[in-house]
Simulated scan of single mutants.
Amino acid sequence: MSTPAAQKGRGTSHNPDNRFAPSRSVAEDDGWYQEVPLTQGTQVRVELAKSVISRNTSPDLPFDRSINPYRGCEHGCIYCYARPSHAYWDLSPGLDFETKLIAKTNAAEVLAQQLSKPGYVCAPINLGSNTDPYQPIEREQQLTRRLLEVLLRFRHPVTIVTKGSLVLRDLDLLAELASQRLARVMISLTTLDDDLKRVLEPRAASPKARLRAIRVLRGAGVPVGVLCSPMIPMVNDSELERLLEAAKEAGAQSAAYMMLRLPLEVAPLFEQWLQDHYPQRANHVLSLIRQSRGGELYDSRFGARMRGEGVFAELLAQRFAKAMKRLDFAGRETQTLDCSAFCPPGGQMALF
C-alpha cells in the first residue's frame, strides 16, 4: 500500500492503531484496491463528565491540578505529547487525534459542583495542560469561557497555556480575574517562520497573532508569559533567542522552554513527519534527540523529560539562561496568584 498523502491543514495523514486495540487490520494491495482520500472534516463527540479536575504529583509541573475541556486537539501539532491519550478512547493518536474530538459539554457545571464541596482546598487550576483550551472548536463550544465564568464567580485562581489567539475573546473575564490576582496566561510560541508553523502546527494561530495576543493581554493588565516549547534540534532551536526577544518586545513578563518530548506513538509520527518535510536533515535531528535522551527518542524520568541531558541540552539551557538575563525576564513560577479570596457563591469568606 502507498503512504497516505499529506493533507492540507492536518499535522499527519497517518492513523496508526492505538496500543490498546485487541486486533489490528492490515491493508493488502490485491490489484483492485482504489485509494480513497481520508476525510479532513472534524467530528466532535459529546461527553458528560463526572469530574473535570485532574490531579498530578509531577515535580516538573508548576501546578497540581488542571482541566481539559476537550480530548484531542484540532491544532494538529505533530509533536504533541498528548496524542497517545487518544488511545484510551479507542482512537488513533494520529489523524484521529486532530479530527475526532471529544467535548465535555457539562464541564462548567461539574466544576462548580467540585469547587463547592466542603473539603475542597484552593490552589491554581491550569487550563491547557493536555490539549489547548482555545483550539478552533472552542469558538462554537465556548466551554473554556464558561469555565472562566465559574472560576471568576468562585474567585478561584487560574493559569492558561495556549497557542490560540481566541484567548482574546475572553479578555473581559481574564482582565477581571487579573485585577484580583487570579489569572496568568502563557502563550506558546514555537517559531516566527510562517512556513514552518504551517507544517508543524497546521491549525494553530500564526506567530504574529500570538505576539498580538501577548501585547493585548498585557495591555489589559493580564500577567502574560511566553513558553518556547518544544525546542526541536535543527528545526526551530536556532530561533530561541529571537522568540524570547519578540515576546519581550510584545510585553511578555516571564518565559520558559521545554525540549521536544516523543512519548509512545508520537515518536513514529514525528519520524514520518521529518521524512515528509525535512528528509535531508531527518537523521541529524533524530541523532541529536537521542544524544539528549540517553540514546533513545524519549526519556520519561522526572527532572529529565522536560529539559533533556547531554551536550546539546546543556547548550540550549545555557542559551536560554543568558537570554533570560539579557532580556530581564522573570521565571515562570515567580508570578504568584491569590488563593485567599476563594469563596463559593453563598459562602462566607474568612475574617482573617
Rank of each mutant, 00 (worst) to 15 (best):
L211E: 00
F154T: 03
A252Q: 00
L168I: 14
T190D: 05
G221F: 02
Q253V: 13
S165Y: 06
L243Y: 00
I232C: 10
G225S: 11
V158T: 14
R215A: 02
K197G: 01
G251M: 00
D194E: 15
H156Y: 15
R218S: 12
A183M: 07
L260Y: 03
A250F: 01
A250S: 13
V185H: 00
Y257I: 13
L166S: 09
R210H: 02
E176K: 14
E201S: 09
R155A: 11
L152N: 10
A209L: 08
P157A: 04
P157L: 04
L171D: 01
E249Y: 06
L217M: 08
L182P: 09
L227Q: 10
R155H: 15
I187V: 13
D172T: 15
C228W: 05
R261I: 11
V199E: 06
E241Y: 13
T159V: 14
T190H: 01
P202G: 08
L182K: 10
L200E: 01
R261F: 13
R261S: 14
R218P: 03
L148F: 08
I187M: 06
G164A: 08
V224D: 00
P230I: 08
L260T: 08
S179W: 14
V199N: 03
N236W: 05
A252L: 04
A205K: 03
E249G: 05
R210V: 00
E241S: 15
L240A: 12
F154H: 14
P233S: 11
A209C: 11
A247T: 06
T162Q: 04
L171A: 11
I160T: 07
R210A: 01
L166A: 14
R218I: 01
D170I: 12
L196C: 08
L196F: 12
S165C: 13
K208R: 15
V167K: 04
G221S: 10
P230A: 06
L260H: 05
D172Y: 09
L151P: 05
L260C: 04
V226K: 03
L262E: 01
P207T: 02
D195W: 14
A204M: 04
C228F: 05
P230M: 03
I160M: 04
R210Y: 00
P263M: 08
R146V: 09
P233C: 06
K248Y: 07
M231V: 14
A247R: 01
R198E: 12
V158N: 02
P263C: 12
M186D: 12
L174C: 13
R153F: 09
P263T: 13
A255C: 15
S206Q: 11
V167H: 06
R203W: 11
V185R: 06
D194I: 11
A252Y: 00
R203I: 08
L171F: 11
M258D: 05
V224F: 03
K197C: 10
L152E: 10
R198H: 13
M258T: 15
K248M: 04
R181W: 10
K163R: 14
K163C: 05
M234G: 07
A213Y: 03
R242Q: 15
A213H: 07
